[in-house]
Amino acid sequence: MTDAPRDPELPRGVALAWGVAANPQRGPKRELSIERIVEAAMEIADAGGLAAVSMASVATSLGFTTMSLYRYVSAKDDLVLLMGEAGFGVPPETVAEADGWRDGLLAWSRAQVDVYRRHPWLLDIPIGGGLPATPNNIAWLDAGLAVLEGTVLDPHERVAVALLVLSHTRWQGTIERSYVAAAAAAGTSPDELDTAAANLLAQLITPEAFPEVHRALLAGAFGPEGGDPFAFGLDRILDGIRQYLDTRPADATVPPPAAPADPPEIEHDPKVREAGKAVREAEKALREARKREREARKAAVSRRA
């Protein structure tokens, strides 16, 4: 008789996140706990980034040996997973209380940006393949999907919309973190950093060489007065979703995505190879000319200074 298939064993970190992992049999006078370990690791990451977190650094901050931690968390990867779970927490009630799907997605996105601002190291946690596997991560996804309930979107489309907004939100968190780090290193503010960068570009960019960038510079598009590009981008994403909702019949079915087309075959014609070589040489010459132009502009700026 064939044995019944066994349920797959949960990874230790996932089991800890769900609270279904076996507790350690031994511990240093029960003064240590998974919660204390994760909290200490998050404090280290908040101060020095995810790279500063190690089992040894966490143990030192708690006043225990590294081996003591391994009785609770068997690997650093499990600790990072639990840090991410605690760092994200649960989505705020403002998402569920929002008026309509658009306000709901706006609240959902803004709440995630706030999380990245509190714990920038969350952006350094690798995104694993497949679905989220821990309770808080699933709660965030569930909250994003819930605001789309009542629309004509089917479950596949709701997931796609949530991922679209999530990708924009994560990119905003990444860029904002870079600005804050660069400003801190320069001893200035992100807005002042923007202004200084725009002033530098204004000395290098000419309307003849880069007409569109020059026009944007004159309009102040690269400075703090240019407004919030992330809010603008998210609004346009939501406009697109609104248009799709307005034009999609409630009973429509979404066709599966088309398979990628095979790349066109290029005949092995000597003329084709010669033309390709000529293009590459022209591109190389253009790059070299632009390099010389940048060097000349840099020298001119140095002389004026």
Rank of each mutant, 00 (worst) to 15 (best):
P263Q: 13
L148E: 04
A275P: 02
E93N: 08
M42N: 03
V301R: 09
P207F: 11
G150S: 10
L122N: 08
D77P: 01
G130M: 13
A51H: 06
Q112E: 14
L204Q: 10
G187M: 07
V147N: 08
A98W: 02
R6G: 05
G130T: 14
A133S: 09
V161D: 00
L123E: 05
I138L: 11
V73D: 03
S57M: 00
Y116E: 10
G220Q: 03
K76A: 02
T94Q: 11
F88N: 01
F230M: 10
G63A: 03
A278S: 13
D7L: 10
F222V: 06
G128I: 05
F88P: 01
R12H: 12
M83G: 09
A305S: 11
L106P: 00
L131N: 15
G63S: 01
K76C: 03
L50R: 14
L79M: 07
A146I: 03
V38K: 00
E157I: 01
R242C: 01
P91R: 07
S54Y: 09
K291F: 04
A51I: 14
G187N: 05
L50K: 12
E212N: 08
V272T: 11
E149T: 08
Q243P: 00
R280D: 08
A296S: 04
R117H: 14
A47N: 04
A250L: 01
V20E: 01
I266N: 02
P229K: 12
D246N: 08
N199G: 15
E208R: 14
G240Y: 06
P263S: 14
R12F: 11
D103V: 01
G150P: 07
A111D: 13
E35I: 01
S178Y: 08
V272N: 15
V301C: 09
R170I: 14
T253Q: 04
P224H: 15
A17R: 05
D191V: 09
L204E: 03
E97V: 10
D142W: 13
G89T: 03
G27C: 06
A96Q: 10
E9F: 00
V213P: 00
T134V: 14
H156P: 00
V272Q: 12
A219K: 12
L163F: 11
A183Q: 09
L238K: 13
F230I: 12
E288R: 07
L218C: 15
E288I: 02
G129N: 03
L218Y: 02
E293R: 15
S74Q: 07
A305L: 11
T151N: 15
E274I: 04
E274N: 13
P256I: 06
I127W: 02
G13S: 02
E274P: 01
L81E: 00
P207L: 11
E35A: 15
P132I: 11
R304F: 07
W18Y: 07
I266K: 06
G144S: 06
H119W: 10
T169S: 15
P264E: 13
Y244F: 07
A202S: 10
G130S: 08
N136P: 02
G49Y: 03
V159Q: 03
P224D: 06
L79I: 02
L245G: 03
A133E: 08
S178V: 04
F230K: 03
P270F: 05
D78F: 01
W101Y: 12
A143V: 00
A278Q: 10
G48C: 01
P11F: 04
F88E: 00
D194Q: 15
A56E: 05
L200T: 15
L193K: 03
A299Q: 08
E267L: 14
G87P: 07
